[in-house]
Each structure stands twice: as C-alpha cells, then as structure tokens.
C-alpha cells in the first residue's frame, strides 16, 4: 500500500498583505473559501491565522469563530482538520493566544517551541511559563499541538516538555525552514532536523515547509524523507521565481502532483487524523 502524505494548507499567516499578493485571503469569508478550495485540491489540514480589519495579524477569537462558522455553514461537506495558530500577533497576550482554543476546540493548534528574534527586528516570545501552560491546556482541551520548530534547539525543547508531561506523545512536528533567525532552508538542514527529532523524540511524525527559494527543495525532500508537507501563502506568496501565486489551491495542487509522482498518495483528512493521532 502506498504511503499517505499529508498536505497542510497555511493560507494566510500574519504577514503577507494584498500589496504583496492580491490573492492572499484576509477576511473570514475569504479565508473560509480558500480553505474549502484547498480541501477540494487535496489538503487534509488547514493552518489558520486571522487578520484585523486593517489586514494585520490578530488573535481576535471572534475572527476565528466567524471563519469556522462560515466554513461549516457554507461547506458542510468539508471535513478538513482545523489547526488554529497560537502565534498570530507578536503583541497578543498569553491569554488571547489560547482562549480561541478553549472556546472553539479545534482538533489542532500550533505550539511554537521556543523564543527567537523576529525578522532581525522584534521578539517572538514563547516563554517557559507560557509553553507549560499552553501544553497543559491543550491536553485538557483535547487540542493536538503541532510543534513548530524553527531550529534544532526547539526540538530539544519539545523533548524536555515531553519528558515533563507538558506534551504527550506521539508528537507532530512542523519543521519551519528558511525563516529569518531560524535554520536556513536546505535538504542538509532538514535532514539534521529530522535526525534530531528521531533521536530526541522517537516515534514522532513530522511535516515541513521552506520559505522563498527553499520552498520546492524542502517540499521534495520532505516527501522523499517520509514526512508530510505544508504549502500556502503564509510561507510563500510567489508560486515560482518572479511569479505571484494565483491562489492557495494552486500550491496544494502542485504538492499533490509531487506526492503522486513520487509514488505516494495524498492523505484524506481522516487518514491524516490517524497519522497525527487525532480523536475525531
């Protein structure tokens, strides 16, 4: 039986705006429609960020709720796994970074496993106290953490929280490659991230994405190394060098082609639930 590969669609993020690519979805209605189109194209997981009315990243729980309501109301056939960010605004409080998980109970939420500088200009803070509280809360609320790692030290941090019981295995990692202040995007570095994960958190599952020039390199490498993939305009507004993406679904369609050409099958949402270890 062919291996199943999960495609996660990260459709919005907190950064790109219409001036970067007019096809970036920003409103709850736009995001919900994009998620549906990505699901139709083969995405099993949707990683969601929200924007305020000015287009800036926000952790406004009402925006999350409205997006989920629109998706459910307008597309009741869509069974995509919802993965809500906990890091959609660098200035959000620790409370607003998690209250939407408590109230909306998505199947997954992001868990950024350490602090780092942000774009050489700011701070992306995930303090020990916050990660401990968030990990415990996610267990209580039945929300599976997606462990986002921007460098190998964050994988070691995940191993620490796993040992402490703040995180519960099997873990699901998202290797974030090529972001400023994180590990550069290359096959060599992705292999090192995977080997670090295998050593420190054996039995874990993983996905990866690369921003910018490393997007395709990491996509192909993740499939070849037995991982899963994430695509979308959160990470890349360019479809290829000098060419703006037409839609998020365009990225998903390409990832699905790569997976099938490799000899794998694109995982359905229910297959993704099994791989990641979700309880529907």
């Amino acid at each position: 039986m062919a291996k199943k590969t999960i495609i996660t669609a990260a459709v919005t993020g907190a950064w790109p705006k219409k001036e970067n690519n007019p096809n970036v979805p920003l409103t709850p209605a736009e995001i919900a429609e994009d998620v549906y189109k990505c699901w139709q194209a083969g995405a099993a997981v949707a990683h969601l960020h929200m924007r305020d009315d000015a287009g800036n990243g926000t952790m406004d729980k009402n925006k999350f709720a409205e997006t989920l309501r629109l998706l459910k109301t307008n597309h009741p056939d869509c069974d995509i796994v919802l993965n809500l960010t906990t890091s959609g605004d660098l200035y959000a409080t620790e409370e607003t970074r998690q209250i939407h998980l408590k109230e909306l109970r998505p199947e997954m939420g992001s868990y950024d496993c350490g602090s780092m500088n942000w774009m050489h200009s700011g701070l992306f803070i995930n303090s020990p106290a916050f990660l401990t509280e968030l990990g415990n809360n996610m267990q209580e609320w039945g929300v599976k953490p997606e462990i986002e790692c921007f460098d190998p030290g964050m994988i070691a941090n995940a191993a620490y929280y796993l040992k402490k019981g703040v995180l519960k295995g099997p873990l699901y990692f998202q290797m974030c490659m090529g972001c400023a202040n994180g590990i550069p995007g290359s096959v060599k570095n992705l292999l090192f991230m995977k080997e670090t994960m295998d050593t420190l958190c054996p039995g874990s599952n993983w996905s990866a994405f690369g921003v910018g020039h490393s997007a395709m390199e990491i996509l192909y490498a993740a499939v070849a190394l037995g991982g899963n993939v994430r695509v979308g305009m959160e990470d890349n507004v360019m479809y290829s060098k000098g060419v703006l993406a037409e839609s998020n679904a365009q990225f998903v369609e390409r990832a699905a082609r790569v997976i099938r050409e490799f000899g794998n099958e694109v995982a359905t949402p229910d297959e993704a639930r099994e791989i990641i270890g979700l309880k529907k």
Partner: peptide
C-alpha cells in the same frame, strides 16, 4: 507562524 523570506 512564518513570515516568508527575509531579503537584503
């Protein structure tokens, strides 16, 4: 959260 590539 990612933020795309950082360029000079």
């Amino acid at each position: 959260m990612s933020w795309g590539p950082c360029f000079f």
